[in-house]
Design a protein around this nucleic acid. Sequence first.
DNA 1: AATGAATGAGACTTCATTCAT
DNA 2: TATGAATGAAGTCTCATTCAT
Lengths: 191, 191, 191, 191
Amino acid sequence: MTNRKQQREKILDAAFEVFGSKGYYEAKMIDIAKLAGVSKGTLYLYFSSKESLYIAVNNRSFDEFLYHAKRRTDECQTFHEKLYSIAKHHLLFFYETKKYPDSFWQAPHQMPEMMGRLHQFFEDYHGLVAKLIEEQKIKNAFLHSKAFCSMLNGYKMDIVSDDDITEEDIMNYAEFIVNLYIEGCYFETQK
Amino acid sequence: MTNRKQQREKILDAAFEVFGSKGYYEAKMIDIAKLAGVSKGTLYLYFSSKESLYIAVNNRSFDEFLYHAKRRTDECQTFHEKLYSIAKHHLLFFYETKKYPDSFWQAPHQMPEMMGRLHQFFEDYHGLVAKLIEEQKIKNAFLHSKAFCSMLNGYKMDIVSDDDITEEDIMNYAEFIVNLYIEGCYFETQK
Amino acid sequence: MTNRKQQREKILDAAFEVFGSKGYYEAKMIDIAKLAGVSKGTLYLYFSSKESLYIAVNNRSFDEFLYHAKRRTDECQTFHEKLYSIAKHHLLFFYETKKYPDSFWQAPHQMPEMMGRLHQFFEDYHGLVAKLIEEQKIKNAFLHSKAFCSMLNGYKMDIVSDDDITEEDIMNYAEFIVNLYIEGCYFETQK
Amino acid sequence: MTNRKQQREKILDAAFEVFGSKGYYEAKMIDIAKLAGVSKGTLYLYFSSKESLYIAVNNRSFDEFLYHAKRRTDECQTFHEKLYSIAKHHLLFFYETKKYPDSFWQAPHQMPEMMGRLHQFFEDYHGLVAKLIEEQKIKNAFLHSKAFCSMLNGYKMDIVSDDDITEEDIMNYAEFIVNLYIEGCYFETQK
DNA sequence: AATGAATGAGACTTCATTCAT
DNA sequence: TATGAATGAAGTCTCATTCAT
C-alpha cells in the first residue's frame, strides 16, 4: 500500500534525525520509534535491524544528494557556473542539515556494507564532478574532483559549529573555493 | 618512577591501536588491557574512564603531529617546499597509521571535551599553515589553510582503503595537491 | 494493565525479602530478579535503579505499617487499650518479618532520599502515638511517643534472634511495656 | 614495640571515623589508610581484612563505652542518680560522636562474628544496668534494662540530625527519661 | 616494616531484538 | 499489522587484597 510506504518514510525521517544528531551508537531505537510515532516493534516490521535502518537512511540521503547535484549542474552553462552549483549544493546541504551533523557521510567502522555503500557514493559523486572537469581537457579528472570536493568538505565543521553563519556566507565560501580551484592561491593577490 | 610513565605509554599505545582500528564505541576496555598486557583494573589506575583514555590518546597524537609538522616546515626554504613538507607529513601520517583509520581526528558526538580539543587542534594546525600562506601576502590565509588541508584529508579514504598504495604514490599525491593549490586546476594543461 | 501492577508487586515482594534478609549492599539485583521470576532487565522496566527499588520497597512497607497501626488503635477505647494495640502491632511486625531483619526502618547512609523518607515515617508514626498521649493531658507528647516506641524497638533484636519466641511472648512483652510506660518501674513491685 | 601499638591505634582512630561516617560498605580501605597516614598495604599488617578491622574498631568502642559507664555509676549513690549517670553517658556518647552516626552499635548483616560481638555488648551493658535495677527489688531487671536503654537509643536520630542541639538539651532529655522510667507517663501531670 | 602498583571477580545497568497478544 | 513487556548478553568500573621491592 501507499500507506506502508508512508510509514516507511516516517521511520526513515525519524531515523535521519536521531542518527544524524546523535551518531550511530548513541542513537537508540526507542528514540527513533518515539520520534516516528510508532512502537519499537514496528521498526522491525520495516527494517530488519538497527544497522539496516542506518544503511537505508544513508542510501536515501545519498540518492537525494546526487539527484539534486546532477539536476542543478545540468542547468548551468559555463565550467565556472557548474562548479559553483556543485559547491553551493554541497555547502547548503551542510547548512540545511546542520542540526544533524552526524549525517554527513561517515560510516562506523566494523560495518562493511555501509563502508561499501559510502565508497560507491563517493565514486558516483566524484564521477559526476570529474565529468565536468574532463570537459575542460584537464587530466586526472578524478583526482581533481576529490581535491575540489574535499575543499568543500573542509568547511563542514565551520558551518556546523558556527551558529551565526548565514546563507550568504555559504555563497561566498562557494565562490571562494571555485576561484581558488580554478586560478590557484594567488587569485586574490595583485601581481 | 620512570616505570609509571612507561606503563602509561604502554597503555596509550594499546589504546591508540584499539580505538584507531575499531572506533571509540567498538573498542572495549578489556581489549586495550589485553593488548597492553595489563589487567582491566590497571587501566583505571592511569585513566579515570574510557572517555578520558580516549582523550589522552588523541591529545598525544595531536601534539606529536603538530610537533613534527612544525619541525619539518622550519627546515624548508621556499613556499612550495614548505607546503610540500606539510602535504607529505599529512599524507604520510595517514599512510603510516592506515591500520588505525579511526584515529584520524574524529570526535564521537556527545563528547564535548573531545570536540573542544579537536577544534583546538585544527585551530593550531591551520594557524601553522596559515602563517606560511600569509608570508606570501595572500589574504584570508585561514580560509586558504582550511582549503589546502582539506584537500589532503580528502585522500585519506584512498590511502586507507587502497592496499597497493606505495610511499611513492603518496609523494605524487602531495606534489599534485601543492601544484593544484598554487597554480589552479589548469596547471597540467597546455594552454 | 492490572498485569503491570501485579508484576510490580511481585518485584516489590521479592525485593522486600532480599533487601530484608541481606541488607541493601549485600542484596544483589540478580537475586531479586530470580526470586521474582523475572530477568534482570525487567527490574529496570519497573524501577530505575537499585536505590529507587529499595526506596519503593520501604515506602510500601511504611504505608502499610501506618495504615494498620491507625486502623487498630481506632478500634480501641481506653488509653491502655490503645497503647497496647500499638505495642502489639509494632512487636508483631518484628515477629512476622523476623526472617527479614534488615527491613526494619534503617536507611543506608549516603542515601539522602531514603533518609528523608525514613524521617517522615517516624514523624508520622510518632504523630499517631502522640495524639493518643495528648488526649491524656500529658505534656511533651512527642517526647513521650519517642520513648514509648523506642522501648518497643528495643525488643527487636530479641525477637529476631530468639528462635523459640512465641506469639504469646510478644503479647506479654507488649503488656509489660505499656504498664511500664504508664505506671513507671515499680509497677510490679509491692510497696 | 609501643610504636606498633601507636600505629594500631592510629589506624583504629581513622577506621572509626570512616566507618562511622560512611558505614561499613561505603567505607573504603584507601580512605582509612589515607586518614591514618599510612599505605593501604600497612592496614593489612595490622588487621587481616576489612571485616576484622571493623570488628576491632567496634570492640574498642564497646570496651571504652562500658568502662566509662561503669566508672560513672559507681560514683553515684541513689538509684535516681545512677540511672541519670547512665542516661547522660549514653546520650553524650551520641552527642560527641554525632559526626560518626554509623558508629552506633549496628552490625551489617552477613557478618556473624560482629553480630555475636554486638550481642555480647548489649548483654554486658544491660547486665550493668540490670544490676542497678535489681537493687531496687524490681523483678525482670533485664527487661527493664532493655526498656530503659532503648528509650535512650530512641533519641539518637534526634541528636544526630538536629544541628542546633546543645549539651543542656541532652541533660534535659536524660532527666526526662529517668523520670518517665521511674514514675510513669503521668509524672509531669497534675493529678 | 612499609609501600603502592597490579589484579580480577563481580556488580549494576543498557538496549537491540523477540514474540505473545 | 502493531504493540511493548521481557530478555540476557555484554560493557564499564570498583575495590579488597596481594606481593615484589
